[in-house]
Amino acid sequence: MNKVERQKEIQQAEELLFAGPQALGFAKGLFQGHFVADWVLPYPRIPAAQQTELDHSLAELRKFLDEKLDPAAIDRQAEIPRDLIDGLGRVGVLGMTAPAEYGGRGFTQMANCKVLEEIGRRCASTSVFVNAHHSIGIRALLLFGTHEQKQKWLPKLVNGEQLGAFALTEREAGSDAANVQMTARPTEDGSHFILNGEKRYITNAAIAHVLTVMARTPVPGSNKTVITAFLVTPDMPGFE
């Protein structure tokens, strides 16, 4: 590795890690040898009012799964049936933490984990599908989307009419998230970005209607780039 490549690697690491462990969150802090107990203790509890609603949702989910989920058939056919996806949408599984104004349940992440446990004890494939759609597929939209973007996409993503995916992994990037090579350059009139590159191993990609795609964008006035998230749909020109 030459000096230029080394400097680029350091820059990418700084871009990913920012300033210090307490600005990173609990998990990244652990990698730097910092355990900040008051970030995770006491162990979170589901609020009493939400626990009642969660218990009702879990009972409804158990009934649906007992009637409709056939894990052996899913393994044989290597496909999650559309009617199962539609049913998961109807019982609220595909939008558990989304706000009620967009059709979600507004549950905490801990409550959502209880839902995933219930599905996972029956069928790991279905649990992974739900988690990929909900916990990363629509997560960036929930956290950082504009009000207009949320209004446009979330209702159909929450009810299962549409599905989401998160496209980060590439040949040289995955766990090494800072090494994303896909580029996104603005058009001359600044109205669009043109993305160039290839993603791989993207859960739900073949059935997703909306993908959060990570790509490198140029920083105006410099030769630096930053990683930016784009909402991409399969009907856009050049999508394969």
Rank of each mutant, 00 (worst) to 15 (best):
36 V>K: 04
37 A>M: 11
38 D>N: 13
39 W>F: 11
39 W>M: 12
41 L>C: 12
45 R>Q: 14
47 P>D: 12
50 Q>M: 13
53 E>G: 01
56 H>E: 14
56 H>K: 07
58 L>W: 10
58 L>D: 11
61 L>Y: 12
62 R>M: 06
63 K>V: 13
63 K>S: 14
63 K>P: 01
64 F>R: 02
66 D>Y: 09
68 K>Y: 13
68 K>I: 02
68 K>H: 15
68 K>A: 14
70 D>T: 09
70 D>K: 01
73 A>K: 09
77 Q>E: 15
80 I>L: 06
80 I>W: 04
84 L>A: 01
85 I>E: 07
87 G>E: 04
90 R>T: 12
91 V>P: 02
96 M>Q: 10
96 M>R: 02
96 M>K: 01
97 T>L: 00
97 T>Y: 07
98 A>M: 02
100 A>G: 06
100 A>D: 09
103 G>L: 05
103 G>H: 06
104 G>E: 03
105 R>K: 15
105 R>E: 13
107 F>P: 03
108 T>M: 02
110 M>G: 09
111 A>N: 02
112 N>Y: 14
114 K>Y: 15
117 E>D: 14
118 E>Y: 08
118 E>M: 07
119 I>Y: 10
122 R>H: 04
123 C>A: 09
124 A>V: 14
124 A>K: 09
124 A>E: 15
125 S>M: 08
127 S>F: 03
127 S>L: 00
131 N>I: 02
131 N>F: 12
135 S>L: 13
136 I>Y: 13
138 I>P: 00
139 R>T: 04
140 A>D: 14
142 L>W: 04
144 F>T: 10
148 E>F: 10
150 K>W: 06
150 K>N: 01
150 K>C: 08
151 Q>M: 12
151 Q>V: 11
153 W>C: 00
153 W>Y: 15
154 L>M: 07
154 L>D: 00
